[in-house]
Nucleic acid binder design. Structure first.
Lengths: 226, 226
DNA sequence: TTCATAGTTCGATGCTAATCGAAGCATTAA
DNA sequence: TTAATGCTTCGATTAGCATCGAACTATGAA
């Protein structure tokens, strides 16, 4: 008898619909209160409290007390990675589920998903890069093409710096809206950062919304429409 | 209401101890029969059959009938990735479990884990590369150092070719024996391939054992002992 | 044909875990 | 102090599911 990591215990924690909903909501990167998470999951506060206690005991989420609120965040980037991969698998095998998407049109248009761009514009970015053959997607995942590497360099993204990080360069991340992918991974995050730096877009405080300026949106359209 | 990937359903399939054991066994890359998987999981054939039916319905495993045997394999590389990440999380948060390791001393010494080297020599390889500062490991994962990139090139590994693949270059994969890591990811796989090419080791047919020649093992020791 | 082996189906059992109403605790506002 | 809000604990209910014995099917061997 030996010691080994208990995969099942971790997976079981992610394997309940209510908890999975909460964790998906936390992928935005924002800290959310217990009540907000209860609403995201569609359960009563009591039930949510029980789930959050389990997630906390399993060190999947980390609580932070502030006044009478308790804010929760994911305990590490590995949790995000796990969720992204599980999303990909679920999509590949066709396990879909009805779920309420964000109602706010601005959220639907462009929002932050952990650290990369999601929403309609996130999907458009993914499709545009694919159409320009800068990225290539197949059953094994996404990768930059040689043309894509060129593009990244001229666009001001330090690929070597990203490669030194542990995170995969490109990863698909599934959007709530429809089964469309947007681009995650360190390259996806770097792209969004670059949009901020170029002044194309900014993040609204206390929200997941990414708001593009008119000129920024035009530049964005030019980028994805060759 | 919208469609979204059903993370919980996939995670729940991985979230049962018996099923997790089976899937971990399948990470070797070999196709295993229902009876072998039952034994790996420590359950009766009936129970295993029920689990395998669920995993098959969920498209986590793929069956292949051959005579009166049914061989199962994982349905894709994304499943391996998910298992590796879950292992990492479980290890990070200290969720360990007693588990029977392989009894065969040869298996314990060096075996294939999917496509990279595991067992004592796999762990030694990981530690050796870390001691030589060719790889660097922290909470975010593993990565090649600049010295490691140099080493890879001189050792005959085409890093650019590996980077073009979708898979992360380096990843930790936890060994059954103790909580020691060995090196997975495309670089881990490439290293093992190189060992084969250099004639240091060969894979035994119908088994997970990797057998090093005497000269090969000596070269291997030199490699990890600066 | 007869026997052995691999695997599945069925049915019964027992345990775990999700759920929510009601009540309690803690913090903030008035 | 009183009231309101955020969250948790308790208790009871319910449902799902893992498990295995027993019986059944399918393939291959003698």
């Amino acid at each position: 008898m030996k010691e080994g990591p208990d995969i099942a215990r971790v997976a079981a924690l992610l394997g309940d619909p209510a908890r999975a909903n909460m964790l998906t909501a936390l992928m935005s990167g924002r800290a959310l209160t217990a009540a907000e998470l209860a609403q995201e999951a569609g359960v009563t506060p009591q039930t949510a409290s029980s789930h959050l206690a389990k997630l906390e005991a399993g060190q999947i989420v980390v609580p932070r007390k502030q006044g009478r609120y308790r804010y929760f965040t994911l305990s590490g980037p590995d949790i995000v990675e796990a969720l992204e991969i599980l999303m990909g698998i679920a999509n590949r095998v066709g396990h879909n589920r009805v779920r309420t998407g964000p109602k706010d049109p601005e959220l639907r248009k462009a929002r932050v998903c952990y650290d990369h761009l999601a929403g309609d514009m996130g999907v458009a970015l993914f499709d545009g890069l694919a159409k320009r053959k800068l990225i290539e997607s197949n059953i094994n995942g996404v990768a930059l093409t040689p043309a894509g590497i060129n593009f990244a360099n001229t666009f001001g993204i330090d690929l070597d710096g990203l490669r030194a990080k542990r995170r995969p360069l490109c990863r698909e991340c599934l959007d709530w809206s429809a089964r469309q992918s947007h681009l995650a991974g360190s390259f996806g995050a770097a792209l969004l950062d670059r949009f901020y730096d170029l002044g194309w877009a900014g993040r609204m405080p206390e929200s997941r919304i990414v708001r593009f300026s008119d000129a920024g949106e035009k530049s964005f359209r030019d980028l994805i429409n060759p």
